[in-house]
Simulated scan of single mutants.
Amino acid sequence: MRTWLIGQERWVLPQGGAVMGILNVTPDSFSDGGSHAGTDEALAHAERLLEEGADVIDVGGESTRPGADPVPEEVEVARVVPVIREMRRRWRVRISVDTRHTAVARAALEAGADIVNDVEGLRGEGMAALCAEYGCGVVVMHMKGEPGTMQVAPRYDDVVGEVRAFFEERLSALLSAGVRRECICWDPGIGFGKSLEHNLELLARLEEVRVDGLPLLMGLSRKRFLGAVLDDAAAGRGTVPTVAMSLYAGLHGAEIHRVHEVAPLRQALKLWRACDERRPTGGW
């Protein structure tokens, strides 16, 4: 079983994958924009995610949906820091901050965050050095382009090879910046500068993108490609497609699942493990 070093904790990742609950404190997220924008609403939702069994909560203050506009850093800080600080005060919980901005990441780490989840792969000025300084866990995501334009006809010669090459480059750069190898987790960036076929190819060949044996995080929850596969956009935003595709990813190598609804996936993983542990071949 793989481990992930996040601050002082060497987290042994559970069989089939841990569950990261999404807490968007933005007015314009593609799936739940505005629902948890206030601090009280955000904390109430965080409590629900914990009660449903979230292993970590990912707090984001800037939407990175296709076509999203950038958010000033001071606005993003004002959205996420009060929530993170109060979460740290109330509960013993792993906290991730979903940001691509170094100043926001620093403020979140100072407030008590354990992980920096960066859609730009820690390429921003000072981001890698900051994460090395704090010894936090890092999620390094692959994104082609930037949120405003990433879904405008994305092209690859070999999407799996290019994502893997990106991770190889980032590993070298992050180690050079002082980030510990054990702190790194990869995210192939499903839906971030990828077409339907690119997303499916990455899922079908998921283990091939893993670099240096480090953990893989998958963010499949309510992604538009699910509706495209089903020929039904509304159905793709439902619970079942996210659970089904997350289980597929878990079977093929994912160690962390980033989702909006924690309980259904937690239940599905428990049922799968109950059967799989009894397989004569030795389980998962």
Results as ranks from 00 to 15, higher is better:
residue 18 A to Y: 01
residue 91 W to A: 11
residue 209 V to I: 15
residue 127 M to C: 06
residue 106 R to E: 14
residue 91 W to H: 15
residue 268 A to M: 08
residue 61 G to N: 11
residue 2 R to M: 06
residue 91 W to C: 07
residue 49 L to A: 10
residue 267 Q to H: 12
residue 226 L to D: 08
residue 180 R to V: 11
residue 67 G to K: 15
residue 6 I to Q: 12
residue 188 P to T: 09
residue 195 S to P: 00
residue 10 R to E: 14
residue 165 A to T: 14
residue 261 E to R: 09
residue 234 A to K: 15
residue 141 M to N: 07
residue 61 G to C: 09
residue 70 P to L: 10
residue 168 E to W: 07
residue 258 R to N: 04
residue 259 V to E: 01
residue 31 S to K: 01
residue 217 L to M: 15
residue 249 A to S: 14
residue 51 E to V: 12
residue 212 D to L: 00
residue 105 A to D: 04
residue 38 G to W: 14
residue 186 W to G: 02
residue 118 D to Q: 10
residue 70 P to I: 07
residue 33 G to I: 08
residue 206 L to N: 05
residue 146 E to R: 06
residue 151 Q to R: 09
residue 141 M to Q: 13
residue 194 K to R: 13
residue 126 G to F: 11
residue 187 D to I: 13
residue 61 G to S: 08
residue 280 P to C: 11
residue 247 L to R: 12
residue 28 D to L: 06
residue 43 L to G: 00
residue 144 K to Q: 14
residue 156 Y to W: 11
residue 112 G to K: 05
residue 33 G to P: 05
residue 157 D to L: 10
residue 228 A to D: 15
residue 276 D to T: 12
residue 95 I to N: 01
residue 144 K to S: 00
residue 58 D to H: 01
residue 260 H to C: 10
residue 175 L to C: 11
residue 170 R to I: 00
residue 192 F to K: 04
residue 49 L to E: 06
residue 2 R to K: 15
residue 136 C to G: 11
residue 59 V to Q: 03
residue 214 L to P: 03
residue 255 E to N: 15
residue 223 K to E: 07
residue 195 S to D: 02
residue 135 G to E: 04
residue 187 D to R: 10
residue 71 V to M: 14
residue 55 D to N: 09
residue 160 V to M: 06
residue 263 A to E: 15
residue 167 F to M: 07
residue 204 A to C: 14
residue 166 F to Y: 15
residue 221 S to P: 10
residue 160 V to E: 03
residue 186 W to M: 00
residue 151 Q to V: 01
residue 54 A to M: 02
residue 142 H to S: 04
residue 75 V to T: 15
residue 148 G to H: 05
residue 214 L to Q: 03
residue 148 G to E: 02
residue 180 R to M: 06
residue 33 G to H: 13
residue 9 E to G: 02
residue 235 A to V: 07
residue 82 P to V: 14
residue 61 G to E: 06
residue 160 V to R: 12
residue 282 G to H: 14
residue 52 E to S: 09
residue 33 G to C: 07
residue 127 M to V: 04
residue 279 R to K: 06
residue 112 G to M: 06
residue 173 A to Q: 12
residue 7 G to R: 06
residue 187 D to E: 04
residue 70 P to D: 07
residue 148 G to W: 03
residue 141 M to H: 07
residue 145 G to V: 00
residue 162 E to Q: 10
residue 226 L to N: 03
residue 130 L to N: 12
residue 264 P to N: 11
residue 245 M to S: 13
residue 107 A to C: 00
residue 151 Q to W: 02
residue 240 V to C: 04
residue 173 A to T: 00
residue 61 G to V: 09
residue 49 L to D: 04
residue 3 T to I: 01
residue 267 Q to M: 13
residue 149 T to C: 03
residue 203 L to H: 03
residue 181 R to Y: 10
residue 282 G to Y: 10
residue 115 I to K: 03
residue 80 V to L: 05
residue 60 G to V: 15
residue 163 V to S: 04
residue 163 V to P: 05
residue 8 Q to K: 15
